[in-house]
Amino acid sequence: MTPSQTPQPSLQIDRYERGWMIAAIVLLATFALAVTVAGAAMGIQLPAPELRVNPQTVASEGPFAQPGVRELAPGRYEAYIMSQTWLFIPREIKIPKGSEITLYVTSKDVQHGFKLEGTNINMMVIPGQVSRLTFRAEKPGTYNFICHEYCGLGHAAMFGTLIVTE
């Protein structure tokens, strides 16, 4: 290193602090790696753009005109769920244990939320958009899906039920 005519101070870091900086980066990188593995190898993924709809007509045309559950193949289901102030249609979904179900959710009015207890199904429900996630129902039981975004006075009453039968 050849010094220039005026010496410029260089960045000095205490070696303890340097150690902490490295530790912090290693820790954060570990977290980043772990979430990448959960996404890429374990299939725990986030909602992706699915379909744009017109919230003013979505209740009368297209797949959400008749919300409900359909069996696509043995053990393979899909459900179209309409969110509106302040209920989900349908309010109750029944599927047998071990089946895989894809949930499509939209809203015909304001923003809502959709969280299915005991699973990683957690989606914003936004007018104009369709939210989609899939999961496998392993354990029989009754699970609530709850609206988790403020949607007006009756928000606290907005929920539905998924029943996994034997």
Partner: peptide, 28 residues
């Protein structure tokens, strides 16, 4: 102090990560 913090962070973060993994896939 920061070692204690880092260990707490790793343990608490790890516990939530385990909840995530135990709740299963969203795109099997």
């Amino acid at each position: 102090v920061l070692v204690i913090f880092a260990v707490t962070l790793a343990v608490l973060w790890g516990s939530i990560y385990l909840i995530l993994v135990s709740q299963g896939a969203t795109m099997p």
